[in-house]
């Protein structure tokens, strides 16, 4: 079977000797929505940089649609796997928003017409057409985040990775990012998000991978976020609606972990004769 992503026994050590990844393995199907969770320093960002070919495996293997990431094909891999960094100031650096979104398509050698088409499409998808000629450093954090996402979408990758897309966003920008994710899902892309936000992961993801000190601690459907031993070991929290339901209803009931299921449960309780 051709997986979108296959990671086999991946190790990574920084120059200072600290081990960031210690034998990570997992597989992701095309079109899946994956949340990678873990405390600070768990190895999330290092792992993402391997999926995009910025870091090359020294031990272990990473395959993208069956093709092993290695020296010589990393440029090709970066066209297939787009990576949106946590801090947009690390990513958005051109003189204008338009130029920044065009940065990827231009580097990948697309024709001028194709670059224009892609940039216009990405700006429309992110609803940032009015920012076209603005200078990135004068934008708000949320606007810069959208420009960073548009810059990666313009490359049209089959797999899109977002590192902490909700970090430091106000509620309105957060809602906008969630809508953008819905749009990207609609296009059939494989989406991978690294996050600390268990509530978001429970609501959004089809599969969750929890990292702990460079290892995969748990992997599976978002239900695993309700398991006490996993959550305790990962230093995370159970989803808020799950904790709330557990507190109100106690054991022995169906305890939802998704907001949508929780709302349905409340409605059914209210409507009960």
């Amino acid at each position: 079977m051709n997986y979108a992503v296959e990671v086999e026994n991946l190790f990574f050590q920084y120059r200072d000797g600290s081990e960031a990844l210690k034998g990570i393995s997992f597989k992701i199907m095309p079109g899946e929505k994956i949340a990678i969770l873990g405390e600070n320093g768990a190895g999330k960002t290092t792992l993402l940089l391997h999926l995009n070919g910025v870091y090359l495996p020294k031990k272990g293997r990473v395959k993208i649609f069956g093709e092993e990431v290695k020296k010589g094909n990393e440029y090709k891999i970066r066209q297939k796997v787009g990576l949106v960094f946590q801090n947009p100031d690390d990513q958005v650096f051109s003189a204008t928003v338009y130029e920044d979104i065009a940065f990827g398509p231009v580097n990948f050698g697309l024709s001028k017409e194709e670059v224009e088409k892609r940039v216009e499409k990405a700006m429309k998808a992110l609803k940032i057409e009015e920012l076209k000629e603005r200078i990135p450093q004068h934008l708000s954090y949320g606007q810069k985040k959208k420009v960073a996402i548009a810059g990666v979408i313009a490359v049209d990758p089959e797999i899109l990775i977002l590192d902490e897309p909700m970090a430091f966003l106000d509620p309105s920008s957060r809602r906008q990012i969630i809508n953008i994710l819905k749009y990207l899902e609609g296009e059939g892309r494989t989406l991978i998000i690294a996050t600390h936000d268990v509530n978001f992961a429970a609501d959004w993801a089809q599969k969750v991978i929890i990292l702990k000190r460079g290892r995969v601690l748990a992997e599976g459907p978002p239900e695993i976020l309700t398991r006490d031993e996993v959550i305790r070991e990962a230093d995370l929290e159970q989803p808020l609606v799950y904790r709330f339901s557990k507190e109100i209803l106690g054991e022995g009931y169906f305890l939802p972990y998704k907001t949508k299921d929780f709302i349905n449960l409340i409605k059914s309780l209210i409507n009960r004769p």
Binding site: L49, Y75, R78, Q79, L83, T96, E99, F108, G151, V155
Partner: peptide, 15 residues
């Protein structure tokens, strides 16, 4: 790293 991930190969191509 962010530049590499968007296809930078040693030369900045501007508008």
């Amino acid at each position: 790293n962010a530049m590499l991930s968007r296809g930078y190969s040693g030369k900045l191509v501007l508008k």
